[in-house]
């Protein structure tokens, strides 16, 4: 195993962890409410801008930690507000196309509002590790990237524990599996919808801060994470959380290895080739279960 291969796997895992973090929210919302939210990546953008403003007041590593918390809270609130005002009224009489068009509209609106209020200028979030790098001989990376990998894993694991152990988490899963049965069991479906939207948006907000610190913050930054999150979600199975976690890592590694050993100019196309293959061979996704079985 040569150093290039190892390096590319590490690069892939790191970027994949951020893909997973953002995709989890998307897949949760889809699982529970059957909404394909094309504005999901823009929640990440909003989170990144929250971090920019928090760090103007409070620079340094402490500011960054606060920014992460603030982004989670504010984006969760924004998610809940958009759920109540925009998605909820359409839930009863919607077709899939309605929801898709509304979320695309929200995506365009948020992007343009950000451009209007925050300028188009790309901004950097100061690296809480001061840009320190880690050189392990065969593999180099930065402390920030390793932190992103570790943090995403912890956040994902925390969410898993919440969904599997807590009563509310189990209610969310029950709603996702069969909302009518869940309602008959006395679960307040509307509360679960709001909660899921808030939680999913908070994950995107946190993902946005990590993404913005690794790269840059600008109004259109949500587009690529949205695209990747959809690839990941379809890859892992729509609505399947475990699928989103592994899907993120698989996509990250497939892109870096494919880009490195096949053709660099098609790096971004690799995700879509995977989608087509998955839809042809295993339409329910790698981790999804066939409906009605």
């Amino acid at each position: 195993m040569d150093s290039l291969f190892l390096q590319q796997v590490v690069n892939g895992l790191i970027i994949g962890s951020v893909y997973s973090l953002i995709a989890i929210g998307l897949t949760m919302i889809f699982g529970v409410m059957r909404i394909s939210n094309f504005a999901h990546g823009d929640y990440a953008m909003v989170g990144a801008y929250v971090a920019v403003f928090v760090m103007m007041w409070l620079p340094g590593p402490l500011g960054w930690v606060n920014a992460l918390l603030a982004a989670a809270v504010i984006v969760a609130v924004a998610g809940v507000v958009s759920e109540l005002l925009i998605f909820r009224p359409l839930l009863d009489r919607r077709t899939d196309i309605d929801m898709i068009m509304v979320s695309i509209g929200l995506f365009i609106l948020l992007e343009n509002l950000a451009q209007f209020f925050f300028e188009a200028r790309p901004r950097m979030l100061a690296d809480p590790f001061g840009g320190n790098t880690v050189d392990l001989g065969l593999v180099s990376t930065s402390q920030l990237r390793l932190f992103c990998l570790a943090f995403s894993c912890v956040a994902i694991a925390g969410l898993q524990v919440f969904l599997n152990r807590s009563k509310t988490g189990i209610a969310i899963r029950a709603t996702s599996q069969n909302s009518r049965a869940a309602r008959l069991m006395g679960i307040d479906i509307n509360r679960i919808y709001t909660l899921t939207f808030g939680l999913g948006s908070a994950m995107a907000g946190i993902g946005g801060v990590l993404y913005g610190t690794l790269f840059a913050v600008y109004p259109t930054m949500g587009a690529i994470p949205t695209l990747k999150a959809f690839v990941v979600t379809i890859l892992g199975g729509m609505g399947n959380i475990r699928g989103a976690i592994f899907g993120g890592f698989i996509l990250g590694v497939a892109e870096t290895l494919g880009g490195s050993y096949l053709a660099m100019e098609y790096k971004n196309a690799i995700g879509f080739v995977i989608i087509i293959l998955v839809l042809l061979i295993r339409p329910q996704g790698l981790f999804g279960q066939r409906e009605g079985v």
């Binding site: 290039l4 390096q7 590319q8 690069n11 892939g12 790191i14 970027i15 993404y211 690794l214 790269f215 840059a216 259109t220 930054m221 587009a223 690529i224 892109e255 870096t256 880009g259 490195s260 660099m264 790096k267 971004n268």
Partner: peptide, 12 residues
């Protein structure tokens, strides 16, 4: 245009 992660290319 618009790509943000260049680690694959730079590693190469």
């Amino acid at each position: 245009i618009g790509d943000t992660d260049f680690t694959t290319q730079i590693s190469k």
